[in-house]
Simulated scan of single mutants.
Amino acid sequence: MPQVTPEYLAQRRASILAAARRRFATHGFHTTSMPDICAEAGMSAGGVYRYFDGKDAIIRELAETAMAPVLRALREAADADPAPGPAEVIDLIHRTLLTDGASTSTAPFMLQVWAEVVHNPGLRESQRHHTAELLDILSAFARRWADLDEESARSAARALIAMSLGTFLMQNVIEIDGEPTSAATLLTSLNGIVCRSDQGGEERPRD
């Protein structure tokens, strides 16, 4: 019998994950069964269970592999000079989330991940770890954008995460059938409202 190489095992594992993500994107987590994943991957149940002990394990690994490139891209962007602005950072997060190596949209999958976090403790813990790392990176961006102390920078980073998630939902759910509103437009519009509110509803003087 030919020797099974680590490269072969990694390729098989990646094939199962790709098949599962396709199935989850079109049918959802809860209506997809392990036999469905086996059929999508073109493998026997024994072949799939050799790599994963169940559907939850596949979901967790897919969520991990989706967020890792985002964190890597943000770390690289943090070293850029000049630093990308808030809207550019949001766009970078979205571009990285929405494509994999084959330029396949992962929007339906990521939306399901965030919904599943509510009642899946294992997935929630996984995403909490990524969120903590994301918060650290975005705090560093905030300190480059403005002279902020650590607490203020982390508060700004939380606001940026909220804007990123909200913009993702706006562009990929609410505006799915039309022209999506850019992150820059949304941020500019919100900034105008916040500035007017801070000044009692008066227009901020323009230069």
Rank of each mutant, 00 (worst) to 15 (best):
A102N: 15
V113K: 03
Q112S: 10
N120F: 00
P35N: 07
A41P: 15
D91P: 03
M43I: 05
L62I: 08
P108H: 01
N120A: 12
L97P: 05
G101K: 06
R75M: 12
G54A: 11
T99V: 14
H27A: 11
G42V: 06
D81F: 02
V48I: 11
M67P: 07
A73H: 02
I16P: 13
I58G: 15
A25N: 10
A87M: 02
L62S: 09
E88S: 09
A57Y: 00
S33Y: 14
A87Y: 07
L97D: 05
L74S: 00
R23Q: 08
V70Y: 01
A25K: 10
V48L: 15
A83E: 07
D56P: 14
A20N: 07
E76Q: 08
T32Y: 12
A80C: 02
L17F: 00
A19R: 03
M67G: 01
Y51I: 05
G85A: 11
H30Q: 13
H119G: 09
L71T: 05
L92Y: 08
R21H: 01
V48K: 04
N120L: 04
E61A: 12
L97W: 03
W114M: 15
R50Q: 15
T104E: 13
G85L: 04
D91T: 01
P82S: 14
T65E: 15
C38W: 07
I37V: 09
G47M: 08
G42M: 10
R75N: 11
L62N: 09
L17H: 04
A68H: 12
A73R: 04
R72C: 13
R22H: 04
S33N: 03
A18S: 14
D36W: 04
I59Y: 01
I58E: 14
S105D: 09
G54P: 07
A77V: 06
R22I: 00
A73T: 07
A68W: 13
K55P: 09
E61W: 01
R23P: 09
G42R: 06
V48Y: 05
S103D: 15
F24C: 05
L111A: 11
Q11I: 09
E64L: 13
C38P: 15
P35V: 03
V117F: 00
I93W: 09
A14T: 08
D100V: 02
K55M: 03
M34I: 10
P82H: 12
P84Q: 06
Y49I: 07
A25E: 07
H94D: 09
A57G: 15
P108W: 00
R21K: 14
D53W: 02
A41V: 04
L98R: 11
F24A: 04
H27Q: 10
S105E: 01
V70K: 00
M110N: 13
D79W: 02
A66N: 14
D100L: 02
A25T: 06
V89K: 02
A57H: 03
Q112P: 09
L98H: 03
F24W: 01
R21L: 05
P82Q: 06
V113W: 00
